[in-house]
Amino acid sequence: MKIAVCIKRVPDMDVRFKIAPSGTAVDETGLKFDISDFDGYAVEAALQIKEKLNAGEVVVISLGGDVVQETLRKAMSMGADRAVQLKADGTHVDSFAIASALAAELKDGGYDLIMFGRMSIDTAHGVTGAIVAELLGLPCVNAISKLEFDGRTAKMRRELEGAYELVECALPAVVTIDEGIARPRYPSLKGIMAAKKKPLESKPAQLPAARLSLDALALPPERAAGRIIGEGTAAVPELVRLLKEEAKVL
């Protein structure tokens, strides 16, 4: 089975972000970047499929400047066979434009399965996979937590609120991956060394003009300090009064 996994390079989320002077981007100084979480699950799921079938190819694709090559090599160090960089400098926020460039690359690739994370953890639009499916005329199943095959049929599970849904579709198809499908492996040391020798192809991204622009980024306002009104049961009447009269939540 030939599988494409589209991955995004995103900053590690456990830091305090600063906004760049432009006001439309995050200040990247000192940030550490990695594969977006859900995309990492997708890479792991793809590798497990290949290992189970003991055949096939996993190709990772990312759109961005040359910095995404490090992200692609990480996916190859986990086990992906080769990588494609769709070269595009600068920040791109129009999911339709990004999906168009990805679809142009994927169209003639002969992929049986095209995988995405269900959303990126930085901008969280969660639409790129679905737009690619639409552009390629393929079925799309979003946010799957399980994936099995019966011949050319993919059998999938989606988690709902207090229930789940079982879905089938014929290949080729586009799927987006939810957490819980598989924990991404650590790149083995041999894998890291092997990734240096795997092919990484860089070609210009065929990006159409963006119709969406990012006008401003802002941090949430600082929260005011809390107030301690007393201790133990003695404080309860005052707390109830404030919740009713001041916060008006009761």
């Binding site: 830091v15 000192g30 550490k32 090599r73 040391l189 890291i192």
Partner: peptide, 24 residues
């Protein structure tokens, strides 16, 4: 550029593969 917690930017003294090994 120096990451938070890496005041002396020692990461710049390592190759990409060396950082990948450390991070893994």
């Amino acid at each position: 550029t120096p990451r938070e917690g890496d005041l002396f930017n020692l990461d710049a003294a390592l190759t990409e593969e060396e950082r990948a090994v450390r991070d893994s």
